[in-house]
Design a binder for these strands. Structure first.
Length: 268
DNA sequence: ATGGCCCGTAGAACGGGA
C-alpha cells in the first residue's frame, strides 16, 4: 500500500497534475493540503472517475485538506474525522480516517510566518494540541500514519542553506523541539528509515529559480507509528511533479507499506 | 539593500504562503 502526501497549493489549479500523476502511479492513499476550495467546489466527480473516493474539508481562500483512497485496492475510508477534538480551530487543517487498518491523519501545520508573529504562537499551540490528541492514541497501539505539510525542517541536513534559515520560522528550536516530541510520542520519520541521498527536499520557493538550484527544505513528512516501522518498504520524494509547467511549490512524498496481517483491502 | 513568485479574492493591489 502506498501512502502519499502533497501540498497542492490550490487543488483547482493542480487537479490536472493530480489526475495525471494518479493515472501513472498506483498510489492507494493520497493526503492533500492547501486545497483552497470550499466543499461545494471540491472536484469529487473528476477524482471519482479516476478511481478514488475522497473525503475533504475546506474553506475559502486558505487551508483545506483531503484524503483520497483508491477504490480498487483500499476502498472507501471509514471513521472520518474533521479537525482535532481537543482544539476548537476555525482553520481547516486536519482530516483523519481509517484506511486498510491504518489510521491516516492528514495535516496541514500552520506556517507561522515569522517567529515574532502571532501566527507563530498559533503554530506552536496548534502542534501542542495535536500532540495532546495523537499521543494517547499512539500509546494505545493504534497503527497510525501522520502525513502532511509540517512546515518544519527537522534538522539542518533538511535545509539547503542552514545558515540562512537558522532561528527562522520552519527551522527554529521550538518548532524542531515539537517535531521531536511528535517522534517521541511513538512515531518514526519514514524518510529517515532509509539511506537517503543528501539534499533531498520537498519544498522550493517559486522565486530565484530555487528548484533549479535545489535550494529547498524538507518540510513535508510521513511519520508512522512504531508498530508500522517494519512494514515501511520505502520513502521517496516525487520531484517530477515539481518540474512541470505551473507546479505546486511542494513535491509529494510517497511511502510504501507492506501489506498488514489483514491485507491491504480487507479492512472494510 | 530589497525582493525577486504564485494563488485567491478581487476587479487593484494585497494577504498569505514558506
Amino acid at each position: 500500500m502506498k501512502i502519499a502526501t502533497w501540498n497542492v497549493n490550490s487543488l483547482k489549479v493542480r487537479l490536472p497534475h493530480l489526475l495525471e500523476w494518479l493515472a501513472d502511479q498506483p498510489i492507494d492513499v493520497v493526503c492533500l493540503q492547501e486545497t483552497k476550495l470550499t466543499d461545494d467546489k471540491f472536484p469529487r466527480e473528476a477524482i471519482a472517475q479516476a478511481g478514488y473516493e475522497s473525503v475533504f474539508i475546506g474553506q475559502p481562500t486558505y487551508n483545506g485538506v483531503a484524503i483520497l483512497t483508491r477504490r480498487d485496492t483500499v476502498g472507501a475510508p471509514t471513521d472520518v474525522r474533521f479537525g482535532n477534538p481537543l482544539h476548537a480551530d476555525e482553520q481547516r487543517r486536519l482530516i483523519s480516517a481509517t484506511v486498510a487498518g491504518v489510521r491516516v491523519v492528514c495535516a496541514y501545520f500552520p506556517n507561522g510566518q515569522s517567529i515574532d508573529s502571532d501566527k507563530y504562537v498559533y503554530k506552536l499551540e496548534w502542534i501542542d494540541r495535536l500532540i495532546d490528541w495523537l499521543a494517547p492514541q499512539i500509546a494505545q497501539g493504534l497503527p497510525l500514519a501522520l502525513a502532511g505539510d509540517f512546515n518544519i525542517a527537522p534538522e539542518d541536513r533538511d535545509v539547503r542553506n542552514p545558515a540562512e534559515w537558522a532561528g527562522q520560522v520552519l527551522c527554529s528550536v521550538p518548532e524542531r523541539e515539537r517535531f521531536l516530541r511528535l517522534v517521541n510520542s511513538g512515531l518514526v520519520d519514514s524518510f529517515r528509515l532509509f539511506e537517503q541521498p543528501e539534499k533531498i527536499f520537498t519544498w522550493w520557493d517559486y522565486r530565484q529559480m530555487a528548484f533549479r538550484r535545489n535550494n529547498g527544505l524538507r518540510i513535508d513528512h510521513v511519520l508512522v507509528s512504531e508498530n508500522l516501522r517494519d512494514r515501511v518498504l520505502g520513502c521517496q520524494v516525487e520531484r517530477e511533479l515539481r518540474k512541470r509547467e505551473q507546479p505546486s511549490d511542494h513535491a509529494p512524498v510517497v511511502v510504501e507499506l507492506a501489506p498488514g496481517d489483514q491485507g491491504p483491502s480487507s479492512s472494510r
